[in-house]
Design a protein around this nucleic acid. Structure first.
Ligand code: MN
Ligand code: MN
Ligand code: ZN
Ligand code: ZN
Lengths: 132, 132
DNA sequence: CACTTATTTAGAACCATTATAAACTACAGT
DNA sequence: ACTGTAGTTTATAATGGTTCTAAATAAGTG
């Protein structure tokens, strides 16, 4: 019910597939980071239901456009998404290839002194690479 | 001569191809950001000599491993490299898809308060996204 | 129910990157 | 200078994540 409204209010039809993806993405205690393939696996595990790869891509991109998901800038052959859409930062563990959230309070204020004419700042993201 | 020593000291044989790539990458006033395909184009323009795509990839990865190039973490279908290997940060212009350097002094000190057991910080990189 | 439009889907296409393996080259040892 | 070996280059194929296509299905509207 909750997700039906969320989708309707976003101009997205509340299909069976989208509702199942909402359950996996948003019906959790903690936020998390994922790739498309990891999400596809989670969907199958949690819902015992196969959603086509194209639909997973379509839905994730639709949710990203609506602001329900964020992409994480990182060097990887796969795109990483985040269900934590608050302003925050990341550790990236180079050995385990795992992302860990860094709250704004863990980083302190960042004051960008340089200005570019005619452009405004949309986001400021910090990536802290870790190794053993 | 300069580059021959640089390569020899790194355990890389100073081949014709590697020396030409060194000229394009390092014999410039300013540092710059590039993708593999942009670099391949620059090589052909500057040296009037075709180097195979595989060699461009091989060489860029060899130079990255030796610390002569850095990869820039960014969400793009292509990998971006940087000839500026100092610690620094980036603006990313979402409209023009262009990278602009942000010196450390433009950002101020970043104090990461959170610690992860058994891991140490290898790098701290800030990405500031810009829009019109 | 009838109709329109959105969505899902399997599969193909795309394209950056990596792997392969044969030809070539640098270079150390003789 | 010749030889042998390991390193390098190269064209080309393979890989794999992502996007595209177009036909089938489902949702919303009256
Ligand atoms: Mn996207
Ligand atoms: Mn690399
Ligand atoms: Zn996060
Ligand atoms: Zn830079």
């Amino acid at each position: 019910m909750e997700y039906i409204d969320k989708l309707r209010n976003s101009g997205l039809r509340p299909t069976k597939q989208r509702l199942q993806i909402c359950e996996v993405l948003f019906n959790t205690e903690k936020t998390f980071h994922f790739t498309i393939n990891e999400l596809k696996k989670r969907i199958k595990e949690k819902t015992h239901n196969k959603i086509s790869l194209a639909t997973v891509y379509n839905t994730v991109h639709a949710f990203e456009k609506k602001g329900y998901l964020k992409q994480i800038p990182i060097n990887s052959n796969q795109t990483y998404f985040d269900t934590n859409i608050t302003d925050h930062h990341h550790f990236y563990d180079l050995n385990d290839q795992k992302l860990i959230d860094l709250e704004n309070s863990d980083v302190g204020p960042i004051n960008i002194k340089k200005k570019i004419d005619g452009k405004r700042i949309k986001s400021v993201e910090v990536l802290v690479k870790l190794e053993d």
